[in-house]
Amino acid sequence: MNGVYLSARYLPFGDAALTVEFGTVINLAVNHKVIALNEALMKASIPGIEELVPTYRSLLIRYDPAKITYERLVAQIREVEEKLKETPREKKRKLTVPVVYGGVYGPDLGFVADYHGSTESQVVKFHSGKEYRVYMIGFVAGFPYLGDVPDEIATPRLETPRLRVPAGSVGIAEKQTGIYPCEAPGGWRIIGRTPIKLFDPQWQPPALLKPGDTVKFKPISEGEFQRIERLVAIGAYKPQFEE
């Protein structure tokens, strides 16, 4: 049914992990279930579970087979899953992310505008005009997968990925948008750059964002970008969270 399962699928992932899959698509209800199960399992602390990895549509559970068998673990997770509420009470946190759009900071802004027969300023307006959900953190340390991007600016990835995308780059891939926390190879259409830091191994937790958070982009000037960049460099920039 549109890639949203009526009941979760439990799938072995090698000899020491399993996946609980709630659907095959990017979907709010599916992601809610993933995060709700993640939080419920963190509270349940079932012996043998070693790590939980929530993604768009599934929860990966790494376990120690010497402590618990697959069958027993599945039975215990099912018990937790059956008690989940339809929509979890997610603690809403909203982060405002300043972005300088276009130019050297966003080399693909023009392409995205042309692709939709639109203008650069229209693309900026659409991109920064919406609140996005953090569906998951993945790819590289601290990279937030955000959605859903309005159809007016949703654009396919580059055919040949770039070998180096600078840290802070804000990109679009179909209906997803994301921020590169560090320099990495990548195929997303880069439309701007933020000076803020998204990951630091000294932080606890090390990633600024977590699944379920909300992100809103705010267009800034190049001068403002440089001002914030200097603050970040000396550790004087405070990320703007609203609870």
């Binding site: 549509r57 790494r62 998951m136």
Partner: peptide, 11 residues
Amino acid sequence: EIVSDALLPGA
């Protein structure tokens, strides 16, 4: 292709 999900060494 799939909607991205988690990887572990060995996958």
